[in-house]
Design a protein around this nucleic acid. Structure first.
Length: 155
DNA sequence: GCCAACGTTGGC
DNA sequence: GCCAACGTTGGC
């Protein structure tokens, strides 16, 4: 099993929104970054565990856990002219944007803030989240990082 | 609200 | 293929 971190702006779609969804599941649409798409298309498998991260908010950080709950499939918003994610250059016979469904698991007992994560940069080693200028919205997490960050929840 | 960092676009 | 311009992300 692999581990991931996915960012979302709580003003647009936060972990409470995910929990409130039917089946607590949401298609992770709107990703328009090739690196992030490649993770969903090629690497994320059903059952993989996900840190749900709130970005662009008062206290950015990891707020909960979700899991990959579907195989990859085309993001329907790319073909919807009324969607802000509409991509006229995407060919229906060869869709450009691929997503997976994400299912709510639980909230963390407390938020593991970005500031706190940065304090543990040395123990975490190389981590896309704390790299300078990081803007990637989906990134891999090693098992060691996963365990370490979850350990912080109990402190 | 500011701004640094980054990805994409498009002219050449 | 280069690179300037532009738009977006996201922390602060």
């Amino acid at each position: 099993m692999a581990y991931w971190l996915m960012k979302s702006e709580p003003d647009a779609f936060g972990i409470d929104d995910l929990k409130a969804r039917p089946k607590k599941t949401e298609p992770w649409d709107g990703v328009r970054n090739y690196q992030a798409r490649n993770f969903m298309r090629d690497d994320m498998k059903m059952g993989d565990q996900i840190f749900f991260y709130h970005s662009n908010c008062k206290v950015p950080g990891i707020v909960g856990i979700a899991e990959v709950s579907s195989k990859p499939y085309p993001d329907p918003t790319q073909f919807d002219p009324d969607s802000k994610y509409f991509d006229p250059k995407s060919d229906p016979d060869d869709p450009r944007w691929i997503l997976i469904d994400v299912k709510y698991q639980r909230h963390l007992k407390r938020v593991i803030s970005l500031a706190e994560i940065k304090e543990h940069a040395e123990a975490l080693g190389d981590f896309a989240l704390t790299r300078k200028g990081n803007r990637l919205s989906i990134m891999p997490v090693t098992e060691a990082q996963w365990d370490y960050l979850l350990g912080l929840e109990q402190t």
